[in-house]
């Protein structure tokens, strides 16, 4: 099964190489698939299963537990309006109603042009800046109705530089260089104490401390 493009396949293998068990890479690889297409396709899950030594059913079983993974196409921009307690106290429900009216879809829906998906989400950890939202996981704080309209206008006209297309999270990836990495430590490979703990024992021999 080929789903990932060459560059993403190399990234996928690099991610897997950091874990003692390939299955641990399952969630990061689902994110990578979502980055490639904006949502998680069946082919993506088949290849992730091959790469991680699992079955497509296991991949879907795990993935469907997590809200960020979309198993059907969504808008280029996913707009998540927080309505949890701190935001609710400062007008989040009105903001969501305004968003629904502006975009012409109910929360959970996608606009006909495929540009926007609107979601009513739980706390996104910006409670002092209520009401707040995320668009493709980039924050907008203390959002008024006018701010919301301006944001939508900017997104429609490609003027929101800090917002990548849906699926892309961090713009920087971790790389562990082969020559300076310590390497993975699997349960079956490391039955002895790490070498630096021997410093405790040496000092005990010398000083008699416990």
């Amino acid at each position: 099964m080929t789903y990932f493009d060459d560059s993403n396949l190399a990234t996928a293998r690099e991610i897997i190489s950091r874990y003692p068990r390939p299955k641990s890479a399952l969630i990061p690889l689902l994110h990578l698939a979502q980055e490639q297409d904006g949502w998680v396709t069946d082919d993506a899950m088949r290849q992730i299963a091959e790469l991680t030594g699992t079955t497509p059913a296991e991949v879907k079983g795990t993935g469907s537990f997590y809200e960020m993974f979309k198993f059907h196409p969504v808008g280029t921009y996913v707009v998540n309006v927080c309505t949890n307690i701190a935001c609710q106290l400062l007008g989040a429900e009105d903001l969501l109603a305004h968003a629904e009216a502006t975009l012409g879809v109910k929360a959970g829906g996608t606009t006909a042009d495929g540009m926007f998906t609107l979601e009513d989400v739980e706390c996104i950890a910006a409670c002092t800046e209520a009401p707040c939202l995320q668009v493709n996981y980039r924050y907008r704080l203390r959002v008024s109705d006018a701010d919301f309209d301006a944001l939508i206008d900017d997104l429609r006209h490609g003027r929101a530089d800090d917002v990548p297309e849906h699926g892309t999270l961090a713009l920087v990836r971790q790389h562990i260089p082969a020559d300076t990495g310590a390497g993975i430590v699997a349960p079956e490979d490391a039955r002895e104490a790490p070498v630096w703990l021997a410093r405790n024992a040496k000092a005990d021999d010398a000083g008699g401390e416990s």
Partner: peptide, 17 residues
């Protein structure tokens, strides 16, 4: 330059309280 070696692996979730 010591005998202490460890990798820190950044990993991330996908939306589940």
């Amino acid at each position: 330059g010591t005998d202490f070696s460890v990798d820190i692996v950044l990993t991330w979730g996908a939306g589940a309280y």
